[in-house]
Design a protein around this nucleic acid. Structure first.
Ligand SMILES: [Zn+2]
Ligand SMILES: [Zn+2]
Ligand SMILES: [Zn+2]
Ligand SMILES: [Zn+2]
Lengths: 157, 157
DNA sequence: GCCAAAGCTGTTACGTTATAACATTTAGCA
DNA sequence: TGCTAAATGTTATAACGTAACAGCTTTGGC
């Protein structure tokens, strides 16, 4: 069983800060804190769970504290919102524009983010054939990950 | 500019009732009322907007009234939930199992439901290549419909 | 018809998710 | 320094959704 290494986390946070700087924005403490929580999470996290974590450090934090950070991270491409769960997840590859295909395990709640340009192209084609121009596509799929399908019991809720 | 005809609506409701009966379930008055509202809507409808409509007839209706009807309709395949909007839409072809691809116009809010088996297959393939078995896929895509892209001003919010 | 079981509805209360609005502080810069 | 824009603090409330329990209605066996 793996766990995230602090070194990896620091590396990711540094890359994120540089990514923000390149866009003329800043990864402030609050934003970094939320991103760190998302990066460290096994799966996705809900806004109020993030808030509870933040409040361990800053007891005065309120919903806008975390929602503002989340809005920033999502807009900057550093995180994604899982609409079907009202939850958030760190982007696995924010430096390269991609069409996220989110595989969400219903059992262990882990999220795997893929990118398939041909799938995205086919989708855009279908839409275009109906006169529809696609602006944003984030495909969310529910199911079972390999571990959970194979009868693993570690990740059960 | 078209509008739904009562005749079509009655036809759809009858077909829905028969569909329920075939499943050993019933399209009760409340469920039919909610479905009728969804079928008559130009785009999707939110639960509390449906509630407000229902309350014009039954002033005592409460949130569970509409959420129960919606749960039933979604489970029966008569309606879909648009996760990215927290809204609901009538299914365009509930008698045939399909993989919904929802084109949601960000401007006029109309929803077009497609089904593309090859797209669904490709998606399942991508997932399988990561050991993930897909249980449910409802793809939601935001963008602009033909009318709105062509500069139509009628549907603006 | 009577009863019991199951399903549906009424009703109250509450939990969860998200934002509006305005005050204050901080950061960047002339 | 003093101006401005961005970020944060703070309070309150809007929007979305469900738990729990009581009552009613339909159905099927007797
Ligand atoms: Zn991503
Ligand atoms: Zn799993
Ligand atoms: Zn459908
Ligand atoms: Zn449109």
């Amino acid at each position: 069983m793996k766990h995230a290494h602090t070194h990896d986390l620091e590396h990711d946070l540094l890359a994120a800060a540089q990514w923000c700087a390149k866009r003329g924005e800043k990864l402030t403490d609050q934003r970094r804190e939320v991103l760190a929580l998302l990066l460290s999470a096994q799966g996705s996290m809900k806004a109020y769970d993030l808030l509870a974590e933040i409040q361990k450090q800053r007891p005065t934090a309120a919903p806008p504290t975390v929602y503002r950070a989340l809005d920033f991270l999502v807009t900057a491409g550093l995180a994604h919102k899982l609409e079907s769960k009202n939850a958030f997840v760190a982007c696995c590859d924010f430096e390269h524009p991609h069409h996220g295909l989110m595989l969400i395990c219903d059992r262990c709640h882990k999220v795997t983010e893929l990118s398939d340009e041909r799938l995205a192209a086919r989708l855009a084609e279908d839409a275009a054939s109906h006169g529809f121009s696609v602006a944003a596509q984030d495909i969310e799929v529910r199911g079972l990950c390999r571990n959970c399908r194979d009868g693993d019991t570690e990740g059960a809720a």
